[in-house]
Design a protein around this nucleic acid. Structure first.
Lengths: 224, 224
DNA sequence: TGTACATCAGTGAACGCGCGTTCACTGATGTAC
DNA sequence: TGTACATCAGTGAACGCGCGTTCACTGATGTAC
């Protein structure tokens, strides 16, 4: 079986062009963020004529969406890894805290290690694109091995915090938004903002402090 | 004196083209974010030939930077307004807390009311653009009426929190990054993310909860 | 087992687009004498 | 007060760019009989 990505080809049919284009699209996103996901370049790398892409993707936007979903799946897997690494803890308190911590730190680590994919995953849509409601279900799902997307993984971790008595049940609704805000904002500062030139340990320290802040801050009663 | 923006012109010289182009650039950013700041469109609106812009800006990027600085100044002013609205409180505890709250809520309100400017202010630079160190000092400064940029305003508010005894001095260093992360991340969720379709009161409630979370969370000792 | 034919994946050539940017220019301004 | 001239702001015309996308095509595949 030939390398699925390799542009050399002896058959007229490619056999797996959709998958190949998607892989190249992901590579482009990894190298240069969402703007680098250029349809012509993906076909070029696949060793195929530009318009061949239209047999497999409606248009450039369609390809980009698929890449975006793949990037989200990568992130989901990164977070799952952090959660898995903590399952050996049997004390529910410890495990719940460690998992929560892992989600936040995993998110930030991924942002630093894969800035292109991270930016693609959360690329702002053009200004006027309407929310199409439910995501259409395709093979390119944003989910990780557990079948959950990053948001759902965060949600579960918060549920576990409640179950372990670390988070008042009254605080649970909407807690995702609080945690996600903190962590995503720091990703921005570190990636494109004023913390761009921090090194790894400085970054790590800020990340830990941030997660701790969220954990503590979440205990506060809302509305006061 | 004719409207500085008005494209009708009887003189050969424009007289104020740099300023006019900048104003139109800001309008474009307001309408469609950083990508909408198109040099040709700015000149078109100014009633001037495209290349005339090159008498006043080095290139498109130079114009965009000026617009970005202006957008930051808008944000600074929005935050200043919130801080000013709170100066009537004489009890230092109350005033410091209210000011801090105002900075966060002002930031988020601005993001919602001026999404285009907000996104322009924090537009990610192209991937490979080097940090040029200090910002060059130009007339288009990112500062508000007080002469401070948004980051400095936040810093002062945190200093006041320490002075009022609301924040342990040990927690002060780096506290900006914590607060900024939280608030910027929520701006993202609300602008381009999953909280896109929240209405004003829902938004406001989340914002208040977030600021409270930061305030409480900041009390935690780092490194534990 | 062989052949006709529908299906569809990839080809070849070409488009229009609007952009940023460069060039050599011309018209107005203001300053030196 | 008048005139020569340097300065510089805006003009006119044109470029190349690479992109996304459409069209009519051809070559391979696999299925019905």
């Amino acid at each position: 079986m030939p390398d699925i990505i390799n542009p050399t080809r002896d058959t007229y049919r490619h056999g797996n062009l959709r998958h190949t284009l998607l892989e190249h699209g992901i590579a482009l996103a990894r190298e240069g963020g969402p703007a680098a996901v250029v349809l012509r370049e993906a076909t070029r790398r696949a060793g195929v004529v530009p318009n061949a892409a239209y047999r497999h993707f409606k248009n450039r936007q369609d390809l980009l969406e698929a890449v975006r979903a793949a990037a989200l799946a990568h992130l989901a897997r990164a977070i799952e890894t952090e959660i898995d690494a903590v399952q050996h803890l049997h004390e529910p308190h410890q495990r719940a805290r460690a998992a929560f911590r892992g989600v936040g730190l995993g998110y930030l680590r991924f942002a630093r290690q894969e800035p292109g994919l991270f930016r693609t995953a959360f690329a702002a849509r053009p200004f006027d694109v309407k929310d199409t409601g439910e995501d259409p279900l395709t093979d390119d799902s944003p989910r990780g091995a557990s079948g959950m997307d990053p948001f759902q993984l965060l949600g579960h971790t918060l549920d576990d915090m409640v179950a372990a008595g670390l988070l008042p049940a009254a605080q649970r609704p909407g807690a995702e938004w609080m945690a996600w805000s903190a962590v995503h904002g720091m990703a921005f500062l570190v990636l494109g903002g004023p913390l761009r030139s921090l090194d790894e340990p400085e970054c790590q320290a800020l990340a830990e402090r941030l997660v701790l802040m969220v954990e503590r801050g979440l205990l506060a009663a809302p509305g006061m």
